[in-house]
């Protein structure tokens, strides 16, 4: 078959009446509560996982707003006090010619978080609304989010290092601002949102669409054959199944 997503038609453990351990990949009969090998709690599909995803997602987004509005760093030098927000600090670095570092900061603290909110939101909506699309691409997007999400913590660590290192009484003093806490919370909440998402549901929703396509295609073929041959399709053949919704 040449339709998209049809190249690999795997049977899921759920369809086989089994439950797979998400930790050690061992399979068990559906009703098993805990993996007998590693002790992981087993749930074939967690009905509440989407609510958890959206709860953490919303919390992360709410923490991300003050993270950008309040100063991340408070720098005290002989010439006065300077407050820097995340974006302000990166702009300062760029003005001093440190383009590469400014880029790293902007990428890790602005591009990654915003991209992460968009990606998790898209993946969750695609599953919930049954959007069509390539499951493999969605899976890769999910893996990218899981891999790259933690790297946003770099800005929190930079603040921690600067604040512990630059303590030179009157000459220069760097202290963390309130945005550091908000930003760290935002990173942690979005990591939890990504981990609450059950990637197996990506494949369930696409497999359900594929199955519907198949039955619709069979109906179309049957109808076309009927028109060409002018004869009713013999009973018992797969083409006689009732039309899909």
């Amino acid at each position: 078959m040449s339709a998209p997503n049809l190249d690999i038609r795997a049977v899921s453990a759920r369809e086989a009446g089994l439950v797979g351990c998400p930790h050690c990949a061992r399979v068990w009969p559906m009703e098993t509560a805990r993996c007998g090998r590693c002790g992981q709690r087993l749930v074939s599909r967690d009905a509440k996982s989407m609510s958890r995803v959206w709860a953490w997602w919303t919390a992360g987004l709410m923490a991300y707003i003050p993270a950008n509005l309040y100063p991340m760093l408070v720098t005290r030098t002989l010439f006065g006090t300077q407050d820097n927000t995340i974006v302000g600090g990166a702009v300062d670095l760029a003005l001093h010619g440190a383009w590469a570092v400014a880029f790293v900061i902007l990428f890790a603290s602005v591009a990654i978080p915003i991209g992460k909110f968009a990606a998790i939101g898209y993946l969750a909506l695609a599953v919930q609304r049954g959007w069509r699309g390539p499951a493999l691409r969605r899976m890769q997007l999910y893996e990218l989010v899981e891999f790259i999400g933690r790297w946003s913590m770099i800005d929190v660590f930079v603040v921690a290092i600067l604040a512990s290192l630059v303590q030179l009484s009157v000459v220069a003093q760097i202290n963390p601002g309130p945005a550091a806490l908000a930003f760290a919370l935002s990173v942690i909440f979005t990591m939890l949102a990504a981990r609450s998402f059950d990637s197996r549901q990506i494949w369930d929703s696409v497999a359900a669409l594929d199955a519907r396509d198949d039955s619709m295609r069979a109906d179309t073929v049957a109808a076309a054959r009927q028109r060409i041959e002018g004869a009713p399709v013999p009973a018992g053949a797969p083409e006689t199944r009732p039309a899909a919704e």
Binding site: A10, V11, S12, A13, R14, E15, A16, L18, V19, G20, C21, P22, H23, A25, R26, V27, A135, M139, E143, S199, R200, I202, W203, D204
Partner: peptide
């Protein structure tokens, strides 16, 4: 048997 932890394929 092995169930893929990411997509549940058996």
């Amino acid at each position: 048997y092995i169930a893929c932890p990411a997509c549940d394929a058996l």
